[in-house]
């Protein structure tokens, strides 16, 4: 191969990469605010689902735990929303849990999971999650694990159910302290 050819190749490759880099920078600039906007809308939608009567949601951070404070129309704080990460059967489960001032559960929403489709994935179902509403921390056990428990496990997906239940309880206990 002649030196000239090599140099030509290098220049073309360099040019193309340069153009590509510039183009991507522009795309990134345009889409980034939109991506963040979408993320915010999604977060807000979930927050609203947990606290339908919440008006203002404020992100706060205390003792290295970030959470969202929820205010009603009178400007009074009615509860908090926490993000909880827990280990399930197929990977980690990311969920949001809302509690009122007395640490009674207001609602649970699964944000992300990689459980077995059709079995463990039922943790996102209304039937399972609605069981949490109004429960105190000490009641969040699977019925089969603890006589105090008030949560039914999903048939065929005990490990996933337990991961959600234990994850929430341990997290809230830690926070309450």
């Amino acid at each position: 191969m002649k030196k000239k050819e090599v140099a030509g190749g290098i220049i073309v490759l360099f040019l193309i990469t340069g153009i590509s880099g510039y183009l991507l920078a522009q795309v990134y600039k345009v889409t980034k605010p939109k991506i963040e906007e979408q993320k915010r809308i999604e977060e807000e939608k979930i927050n609203k689902e947990i606290f339908p009567d919440g008006v203002k949601f404020e992100e706060k951070c205390k003792d290295n735990i970030s959470y969202v404070s929820v205010y009603n129309s009178d400007g009074e704080e009615i509860g908090k929303i926490f993000k909880v990460k827990t280990l399930g059967y197929g990977g980690y489960i990311l969920l949001k849990v809302g509690v009122d001032k007395n640490f009674r559960i207001k609602g649970v929403k699964i944000i992300h999971h990689s459980e077995t489709p059709g079995l463990g994935s039922k943790i996102t179902s209304e039937k399972f999650l609605s069981q949490f509403e109004g429960k105190t921390i000490d009641e969040i056990y699977l019925k089969k694990d603890n006589p105090e428990g008030k949560i039914d496990a999903i048939t065929g997906a005990t490990i996933s159910s337990r991961a959600v239940v234990d994850g929430i309880r341990k997290f809230l206990k830690k926070v309450k302290k």
Partner: peptide
């Protein structure tokens, strides 16, 4: 490089 550029554009557009 050309393909990777378009893939990244698609990636960010879908995210948005």
């Amino acid at each position: 490089v050309v393909i990777a550029t378009f893939v990244t554009i698609a990636d960010y557009s879908i995210a948005a």
